[in-house]
Computed example of a mutant assay.
Amino acid sequence: MTIPLSSPDITQSEIEAVTAVLRTSRLSLGPQMEAFEDVLGEYVGVPHAIAVSSGTAGLHLCIKALGIGEGDEVIVPSFTFIAAANAIRYERAQPVFVDIDAESLNMSPSCIEQVITPKTRAILVVHTFGRPAEMAAIMDIASRHHLLVIEDACEAIGATYQGRKAGSFGDAAVFAFYPNKQITTGEGGMVVTRQPELAMHIRALRNQGRYDSVDWLQHAEVGYNYRLSEINCALGLAQLKRIEPILQQRERVAREYQKALANISGLILPATDIPDIRISWFVYVVRLDDSFTEKDRDSIVATLTGVGIGCGRYFAPIHLQPSYAAWRNIASLPVTEAQASRTIALPFFNRITEDEIAQVRDTLRNALLQIQNK
């Protein structure tokens, strides 16, 4: 791609941090991991943080450690990355898909109450595209119905809702650091929680079911190899030291896009200024208005990629995926399906230039005009 969809922001300080680890004899479960956990927990405002091999692994460990299993139901949006629902199914629990709000693209609190049953154990909240969900309403629902809350904050590090960081509301939360995220560890994630016993359990599960207080070859329960290496943690720690400038830069890019695309007919742009909310810009997603079809959207995506401009369908609804065929006819999600059919994620990364944004704008405008003039 001439202009990629995403690109990690790696500086010399990150390179030096990684190479310093390679000069030591400790490449796993060492001081870099401990420091990364401490700094991330302090940043979010939560006392316990556990580094794991991916955001998906973190979600799985939350489901497992909270005792959610076969016969239980977990409410989750379909408009999100498939890992959120997969983690529920790993433990043979049932994802119950809920519709989204057409403006925020986050799960709709009013829809949550409609699907609660005696089998419901938890709400898995996703902060979509780095915009916090309506946590006051969701936490109220959870409290009244005695439900657990897991925050999928994989796209939302640094986002705030009513002055609190995303990831600080639920029983547990998960962040992810894949290369397309705001900060990266290459591969990796982090679970955070206020509950010390839950944190201890998740630490054991990520390391083959081994608790810190026992012998290395003593395993209290079936666990997993969900550890994150010292190399990854060193990279993450160095990135985390730059988190505020990174978030500010990404916000600047989002505002540059807003200016560039403001006068293009047929586009719905994401909100940038929302009372009591700070967006952590993970991606920049535009929507076509309702005069366009899904076929039109796919044609525009093909035009952009055909000239080397990376873009994506963020997100294809989970309940319409082949691996979720059993849910296709039981999930009534009209808003999800309508909005997902018209979304386009445009190239978005820290160091994208004004000239590249202008190239995206011109190509997108021309593609729209071709369809409108047919």
Rank of each mutant, 00 (worst) to 15 (best):
M1Q: 14
P4R: 00
L5I: 05
S6L: 12
Q12T: 15
E16A: 15
V21M: 14
E34H: 15
G41H: 02
E42I: 09
V44M: 04
S54T: 12
S54D: 06
S54Y: 03
G55N: 04
T56V: 10
A57M: 07
L61N: 02
G67T: 05
D72K: 05
E73I: 08
V74N: 03
I75P: 01
V76M: 06
V76F: 00
P77G: 08
S78K: 00
F81W: 13
F81N: 10
A84K: 02
I88S: 09
Y90T: 09
R92Q: 13
D99K: 04
D99A: 00
I100D: 00
E103W: 14
N106D: 05
S110T: 10
S110G: 14
P118M: 11
P118G: 12
T120Y: 02
L124D: 00
L124I: 03
L124A: 07
F129Q: 15
F129H: 09
A133P: 01
I138G: 01
H145K: 15
V149R: 00
E155N: 09
A156K: 11
G163A: 10
R164I: 13
K165T: 11
F175Y: 11
T185C: 13
E187F: 12
G189H: 02
T193K: 07
Q195I: 05
Q195M: 13
P196T: 02
A204N: 03
L205R: 06
L205T: 12
R206G: 04
N207Y: 05
R210A: 08
W216Y: 11
A220I: 02
A220E: 04
R227N: 14
R227H: 08
L228M: 11
L228C: 13
E244P: 02
E251V: 04
V253T: 06
A254G: 07
A260H: 06
L261D: 03
L261W: 02
G266I: 15
I268A: 12
A271D: 15
D276Q: 08
I277L: 11
S280P: 00
F282S: 15
R297F: 14
R297M: 13
D298F: 07
A302H: 11
R313F: 08
R313N: 13
I318Q: 05
S323Y: 09
S323N: 15
I330M: 10
L333W: 11
L333V: 06
A340K: 00
A340F: 05
R342M: 02
R342T: 03
L346F: 01
P347I: 01
F349N: 06
N350T: 11
E356S: 14
E356K: 07
Q359C: 11
R361F: 13
L368G: 04
Q370G: 15
N373P: 01
